[in-house]
């Protein structure tokens, strides 16, 4: 058993049966239920010695909600661990980790901007990387990147002249998107 795997198992042991460890391609991830999110972080910091907060972000898991993941490191041994929780799509809210790790501040604000996941109890919420009043959350899957289909390509030799053919769509932009 690798040291990293062992770390994951120990965190699971501290949290009880509700948490589970996943190991894939050498990456150890501990999935914790939403209500144990802060408890998991406190246990990781105080019991396991993962005192270095590395980063926090999210993944849009569609029907499964949002996977909020954070990366913690033990600065003495360089062991590291991903801790993940699932936040439901219809009520994307979880408690802020800023009380456990101060460094989570900007990471959480960025995640709120890009995914619309709310971190309750954040000391200074508000837009960080997006302009005030930006509509939508760009990294959600329903936010389709259609800039290329909606706007003419600004680099054509004769600006404003069209070829009569539809513009090629970027990979993954559905046909119904755009004008």
């Amino acid at each position: 058993m690798t040291a990293r795997r062992d770390l994951g198992e120990r965190l699971c042991g501290l949290l009880g049966a509700s948490a589970r460890v996943e190991e894939l391609d050498g990456e150890v991830t501990v999935d914790v239920p939403l209500e144990a999110w802060l408890a998991a972080l406190v246990a990781a910091r105080d019991v396991l010695g993962l005192t270095f907060f590395d980063w926090l972000s999210a993944t849009d898991e569609l029907d499964l909600g949002f996977g909020v993941v954070c990366h913690l490191v033990d600065p003495r041994t360089a062991d590291r661990l991903l801790v993940r929780t699932a936040v439901p799509r219809d009520r994307p809210e979880l408690p802020s980790a800023t009380g456990v790790y101060r460094g989570a501040d900007w990471h959480e604000r960025e995640t709120t901007d890009l995914f619309g996941v709310v971190f309750a109890g954040h000391p200074r919420p508000g837009p960080l990387v997006l302009p005030q009043g930006f509509a939508g959350h760009p990294l959600r899957k329903e936010f389709v990147l259609e800039a290329r289909t909606a706007r003419p390509w600004p680099g054509s030799v004769e600006p404003g002249r069209t070829t009569g053919r539809p513009l090629p769509r970027p990979l993954g932009v559905p046909p119904e998107a755009g004008p």
Binding site: W55, S57, G103, W106, E110, L171, G172
Partner: peptide, 24 residues
């Protein structure tokens, strides 16, 4: 942090950039 769903495009790529964290 790279997440793949098995396709030909990344499902999610997150960059932990040192400038972002250090500016805090």
């Amino acid at each position: 942090h790279v997440v793949s769903d098995g396709g030909t495009r990344p499902y999610r790529v997150h960059f932990r950039d040192p400038s972002f964290t250090n500016l805090q």
